[in-house]
């Protein structure tokens, strides 16, 4: 069979794997939903959680589609579709594909037509490099979760602080990242302030949403506050970038 990066058989193979991923997501959704009802959670509350999660996901998912388009120029559509639907992210996959291409004397961004052998090599490097989480979670998840349960049994207050500290630690790293290019201001460039300004707009929209919830006693506003602040922040990036870049 003649190889092409957009060969129909590649889409069939990827389609099978994506179908399995969808089946796993639906399986866990159904099990968690049933469990929620068992422990007395109202179906209305469960529906609200699902709706908010779906709405929140739209913008980041569109960003992932853009990543698929970016990688598709060199690797065809099927492989980026797979890698960004299962485990991957743009930065990881670009580096993995780039390293594999470099190892064969190719340069990502300048590839005209991959051979089947080169394609298999790149796919193997991307797959083997990213597999740690998928097998390590089954090995350690139960032990880590048991540890969390024991922690809660021993000292509930500390368990709550422990949990909050983990979330705050994660958020702190990303807040730091937003400021990573601020020092360029000393070189006369204001471009490093763009992410900071965008974050400020998003935070402001979230604060306004919180105030509206209190003023109008409208709980539904808080359900959509995060997706709205995300979209507002992204939209503000367009004028802010043209202003500060």
């Amino acid at each position: 069979m003649t190889f092409d990066v957009n060969s129909p058989i590649l889409f069939v193979l990827v389609g099978i794997i994506i179908a399995a991923v969808l089946a796993q997501s639906v399986f866990f959704l159904v099990k968690a939903w049933k469990r929620g009802k068992e422990i007395g959670m109202e179906p209305k509350k469960l529906r609200r959680i699902a709706t908010t999660a779906a709405v929140f996901t739209i913008a980041p998912a569109v960003a992932i589609v853009i990543s698929v388009i970016a990688l598709a120029k060199d690797l065809g559509v099927a492989l980026p579709w797979l890698r960004l639907s299962v485990i991957g992210s743009l930065s990881y996959e670009t580096i993995a594909a780039s390293n594999a291409a470099n190892g064969m004397g190719l340069k990502l961004g300048e590839i005209s037509a991959l051979t089947a052998s080169q394609y298999v090599t790149i796919t193997l490097v991307m797959t083997i490099s990213i597999l740690v989480g998928i097998w390590l979670v089954p090995v350690v998840c139960k032990k880590l979760q048991s540890g969390m349960i024991n922690l809660e049994k021993r000292d509930k207050k500390w368990a709550d602080i422990f949990s909050a500290s983990m979330f705050i630690g994660m958020i702190a790293a990303f807040v730091g990242y937003v400021f990573c290019d601020v020092s360029t201001i000393f070189e006369g460039s204001t471009a490093g302030l763009i992410p900071v300004a965008v974050m400020a707009v998003s935070a402001l929209v979230m604060l306004i949403s919180g105030a509206l919830v209190k003023i109008f006693k409208a709980r539904w506003i808080s359900d959509y506050a995060l997706p709205v602040s995300l979209i507002a922040g992204m939209a503000s990036a367009i004028p802010i970038t043209s202003w500060l870049a």
Partner: peptide, 11 residues
Amino acid sequence: QILPALFGGLG
């Protein structure tokens, strides 16, 4: 700017 927009609201 998706990450700053996300972590502004969440943060």
